[in-house]
């Protein structure tokens, strides 16, 4: 059920990116899709009643081995690591898209993509 709500978020973002004709609205739709995908990947690694994948002093038996409790209750670190890079990349791509929007606004004086198409002829 949380998966379905997360997918609903993705669908609203897709609707926004497809139907709206304001350029900034399209960027917003793409950002919402990014959020939902990140959320979905982290949700896949979640374990009910789990702990964060950070080892504390209590989780170590003498000799450097981990306790079985930590191994069986830690959430998955792999999707978290992938999402961590994806979030920073999304900020870079957001800046690129916004700079394209600003440049287009200076050129045509509007954010409306249908009027931009008309001006191109």
């Amino acid at each position: 059920m949380p998966y379905a709500l997360c997918f609903l978020l993705f669908i609203i973002g897709l609707y926004c990116a497809v139907v709206k004709k304001n350029m900034v609205k399209i960027v917003i739709g793409i950002m919402v899709m990014e959020y939902s995908v990140n959320l979905f990947l982290v949700m896949l690694g979640f374990r009910t009643g789990g702990t964060a994948p950070i080892i504390g002093r209590d989780d170590i038996v003498t000799g450097g081995t981990l306790t079985e409790l930590f191994i069986n209750s830690s959430v998955d670190p792999l999707p978290q690591a992938l999402v961590l890079t994806a979030i920073v990349i999304s900020l870079g791509s957001l800046a690129l898209m916004i700079s394209i929007c600003i440049r287009t606004y200076e050129k045509y004086g509007t954010f409306d993509i249908t009027r931009i198409r008309r001006l191109k002829g």
Partner: peptide
């Protein structure tokens, strides 16, 4: 709440 404090810090600043 999904036990991912690294991502929470990064997300809030980003």
């Amino acid at each position: 709440f999904l036990r991912a404090p690294d991502i929470a810090i990064t997300q809030i600043v980003v």
